[in-house]
Design a protein around this nucleic acid. Structure first.
Length: 602
RNA sequence: GGGGACGUAGCUCAAUUGGUUAGAGUACCGGACUGUCGAUCCGGUGGUUGCGGGUUCGAGUCCCGUCGUCCUCGCCA
């Protein structure tokens, strides 16, 4: 290439007028008027208009051949645009380049979909609405990444990563890398496995997280560690889940929960301030797990709107309504939501749709009441004596025009169905403005250490098996296992779990007791985690930490609901890379070397 | 593994109750045009309606299967 750029396509201003410059970039758009040709040249910094005029007829002719996404170099003089032809939608819109030389660096066939950046806001919105299918855009990811929307997100992600590194560095944290090739630990998610050539029949596992390594680093005395770490889990995907994802992994020694909170809150506030200009009030609110389940039916409540769940068991027991009484008598719960002013917003069909939502989560039905000044308009009105109606009005702060919705079932079903109904209602009633930078963060604390696995008939670790119990609950570990609370915490942003961690067990004795409660005999525990148990014996400091899901953080900051938007080269919903075609078969020779003859060869 | 939605021109979409030669915008090709900026105007090319089977006088439309994509439940310590 002869013409190497002197400036980017986003930086020329009136102060550059008179200079001869060279730009390199892609043809964004071209406007051919015969004797006058305009080309907008684009790079990731912006767009600059180049004009080809009659005094250079051979240049005008060459410029007329240019097409979208050709890569070109332009040399010319920066000039002020003619009065009235400035483009206020462009940062460079007060100037243009009068072309003196043009070099074609590369041609481009007609792209499979439109990449063109559009500067005018209302036009851009229209174009964004009918983007090419995501399938096609993933196949040509390198073209899709040219779009400013994705560029903006990757730049934001870079800023966030850099900010995190700088922030933690200032606080004395060390970034330490840990292995990708490790040992499979059957607890938790499915592992991605890598066969060993040197040890035929043996396998490495790719890490689900650096959990064990970071604890070992604490034992080793690296008392403030972090890592921006890739984690891999072979589980089914979702809109906010990829098979490989990135966590900010943090671990600290000689700490209790409050120390972890303090460090992470400082980091959080810094990230939100610097990345999106939002001030997060500190300290962050803390919600007990039990309260979250009661009021929001979820351990990751969206606090941007009300629609709180209210327990009415003590009132429901006074009714003759069999569904309510039956649920209560078999140890269940009756709870409801007051949807303010929504009595007229849901037709019979609309209410049926709401009922479908709760049914998906195991509820048998959804009782509804439309509140009127004198009475309840409801199919269950006849079961609700006047006194009960009075109490319900008071308990649920019900006013005429409100819609009350109730579920009666086991506590699990009530929480799950009403919790999901709550988020469904908020979306249906457009109670969150996704275009607004509205962020509600909270810690969820006081998780139970164990949950009962009915299928396996044993206790299972709620967080992971290295989570420390609350000191005051230590004594009842074996006697009252279900009520033991964990020193565990989740960081919730707008209804998404964006981080979670715990204070770890640093005593080999407590660790052994937990393993045995999890139904893991000492021999088995030794086989799986022997190196950790050993390490805990050799002077392990009290320690704890957290991991933040950086993909989800980027989604939050960027305002997208699609995790593929925040990853340069993501997998699709079935864990395929549509661009490279991975996963794919390999040569039989490769398999033979690994001792895996037979399946999967090509 | 289960449930749901979708698949028509390079791209985004339309096509009445199953009925003539499957249309529009855009892109692309050709032409016109000296101040455009999603340039405009005139003309043109472009289709195995994902694939396979079935019902029917007749299928883009209905049925069965299959492939692909997205959302979701299970799953994700």
């Amino acid at each position: 290439m002869k013409l190497r750029r002197t400036h980017t396509c986003g930086e020329l201003r009136e102060s550059h007028i008179g200079q001869t410059v060279i730009l390199n970039g892609w043809v964004n758009t071209y406007r051919n008027q015969g004797a006058l040709v305009f080309i907008d040249v684009r790079d990731r910094y912006g767009i600059t208009q180049v004009v080809f005029e009659t005094d250079k007829p051979e240049l005008v002719a060459a410029a007329g051949e240019m097409r979208s996404e050709w890569v070109i170099a332009i040399q010319g003089k920066v000039t002020a645009r003619l009065t009235g032809t400035e483009n206020k939608n462009l940062a460079t819109g007060k100037v243009e380049i009068k072309a003196e030389a043009l070099e074609i660096l590369n041609r481009c066939p007609t792209p499979p979909f439109e990449v063109t950046a559009i500067t005018k806001e209302e036009v851009r919105k229209k174009v964004e609405e009918d983007l090419a299918s995501e399938e096609l855009r993933l196949e040509y990811r390198y073209l899709d990444l040219r779009r400013s929307n994705l560029q903006r997100i990757l730049i934001l992600r870079h800023r966030m990563n850099k900010l995190i590194r700088d922030h933690l560095d200032k606080q004395g944290f060390l970034e330490v890398e840990t292995p990708l090739l490790g040992k499979s630990t059957p607890e938790g998610a499915r592992d991605y496995l890598v066969p060993s050539r040197v040890w035929p029949g043996s396998w490495y596992a790719l890490p689900q997280s650096p959990q064990l390594y970071k604890q070992l680093l604490m034992v080793a005395g690296y008392d403030r560690y972090f890592q921006i770490a890739r984690c891999l889990r072979d589980e089914d995907l979702r809109a906010n889940r990829q098979p490989e994802f990135t966590q900010l992994d943090v671990e600290m020694s000689f700490v209790e929960m409050d120390d972890v909170f303090q460090v992470m809150e400082g980091l959080t506030a810094d990230v939100f301030q610097q990345c999106v200009g939002v001030t997060i009030p500190l300290p962050l609110p803390r919600i007990k797990y039990a309260d979250a389940m009661l009021k929001y039916g979820s351990d990751k409540p969206d606090l941007r709107y009300g629609l709180e769940i209210v327990d009415i068991g003590d009132i429901a027991v006074q009714t003759e309504f069999k569904v309510f009484r039956g649920a209560l008598e078999s140890g269940g719960k009756v709870r409801g939501i007051n949807v303010k002013g929504a009595a007229e917003k849901f037709s019979r069909k609309g209410l049926t749709e709401l009922e479908e939502v709760v049914k998906r989560f195991g509820a048998k039905g959804l009782a509804n009441v439309k509140v009127e000044p004198e009475k309840f308009n409801s199919s269950i009105e006849k079961f609700l004596p006047v006194g009960v109606q009075q109490q319900l009005r008071q308990r649920m702060a019900a006013e005429p025009g409100d819609l009350l919705l109730f579920v009666a079932d086991t506590e699990d079903v009530v929480c799950q169905s009403l919790g999901n109904l709550r988020t469904h209602l908020a979306a249906a009633l457009q109670m969150v403005d996704v275009t607004k930078k509205d962020y509600k963060l909270a810690w969820v604390i006081d998780f139970p250490l164990f949950t009962w696995d009915a299928e396996e008939k044993r206790w299972a670790a709620n967080h992971h098996p290295f989570t420390a119990p609350m000191d005051e609950d230590l004594a009842k570990l074996e006697s009252d296992t279900g009520t033991v609370r964990a020193k565990a915490y989740d960081l919730v942003i707008n209804g998404d779990e964006c981080g979670g961690g715990s204070i770890r067990i640093h005593s080999p004795e407590v660790q052994s007791r937990v393993f045995s409660l999890l139904g893991m005999p000492p021999e088995q525990a030794k086989g799986r985690f022997g190196f950790l148990l050993d390490a805990l014996k050799y002077g392990a400091p009290p320690h704890g930490g957290i991991a933040l899901g950086l993909d989800r953080w980027t989604m939050m900051l960027a305002g997208t609901a699609n995790i593929r938007d925040v990853i340069a080269f993501p997998k699709n919903q079935r864990a395929r890379d549509l661009m490279t075609g991975a996963p794919a078969t390999v040569d039989a020779k490769q398999l033979k070397e690994l001792g895996l003859e037979g399946k999967g060869g090509s």
